[in-house]
């Protein structure tokens, strides 16, 4: 079985701050990490490799710096790493990104299972995985908590509003993964990191995957960013201090004033 995992390098958005004057992101000092959902997708693939002897290929579309997350994936046990990088990709929205990645997966060849994080924590769209599935004409199972493979049969536990579903499909298929509640990402040991430095990373351009340049980058993206700004701030309200008893009295007054309890 061949598994392809799509990963992205992202800024750790839990550490991003916004300059309240200019409304721009302060990126200085913010670490770049492997998107946590992709990290779980990768670990899911490696667990399947353990069980079934599958070959795992990891692919990332991004600037040359994204090699870091590919090296991390190799250190964790991935067989093959591909960086899809080209100036022509700059400014790609989710449509153009899924088109380019789908072209690359076609070039990889026989992919039985494609795993993606359900979304990246910088864009928060959750659109690229299903976009790739449609481009490749594959069935998709989104928002999976768990994926198992037996022969050609895929079984997944996926989230739905108000609960979850167990679903089945025949391979080939694409799954996107959510994070389980108690998930702690695994990181490689130093010897594993050192060994991964020796492995080759493949570098593919738009031409290598036969992508139509008109469908890439800003030119190929149907969406345009019109404006980016800081979220509107709510006016700071009144803050009260005092003993627990005083604060309880204050709370009762507030609930009365705002009509949540009767006088």
């Amino acid at each position: 079985m061949n598994i392809v995992v799509c990963i992205k390098q992202v800024p750790d958005t839990t550490q991003v701050k916004v300059d309240p004057q200019t409304g721009t992101l302060i990126r200085a000092g913010v670490p770049s990490i492997l998107n946590p959902y992709d990290h779980f997708a990768l670990e899911t693939a490696l667990a399947l490799k353990e069980k079934t002897g599958a070959e795992v290929t990891v692919i990332s579309m991004g600037p040359p710096q994204a090699k870091t997350v590919l090296r991390l994936a190799l250190a964790l046990g991935t067989d093959r790493g591909i960086l899809l990088s080209d100036r022509a990709f700059a400014g790609s929205d989710t449509w153009a990104t899924s088109y380019a990645i789908a072209r690359a997966i076609k070039k990889i060849g026989k992919a039985d299972l494609i795993l993606c994080g359900m979304m990246a924590i910088d864009g928060d769209t959750a659109q690229t995985g299903p976009g790739i599935a449609q481009q490749l004409h594959l069935p998709q199972i989104t928002f999976c908590e768990h994926v198992a493979v037996s022969g050609r049969k895929l079984t997944a536990k996926k989230l739905m509003d108000g609960g979850h579903e167990i679903v089945e499909a025949q391979l080939p298929a694409l799954c996107t993964l959510v994070l389980p509640a108690d998930y702690k990402p695994a990181f490689p040991s130093f010897p594993e990191i050192a060994a991964a430095q020796e492995k080759d990373l493949e570098l593919w351009t738009a031409a290598d995957v036969g992508a139509d340049e008109n469908l890439l980058g800003l030119k190929g993206s149907p969406t345009r960013v019109d404006r980016v700004y800081a979220p509107p701030q709510r006016a700071r309200g009144t803050v009260h201090q005092g003993t627990a008893a005083e604060l309880v009295e204050k709370l009762v007054c507030i609930l009365k004033e705002e009509n949540f309890i009767k006088c």
Partner: peptide, 15 residues
């Protein structure tokens, strides 16, 4: 909202 809610973006699909 994008970047985990840190910024807001206005998006158009003009064409």
């Amino acid at each position: 909202p994008a970047f985990g809610g840190n910024i807001m973006a206005d998006i158009l699909s003009p064409n």
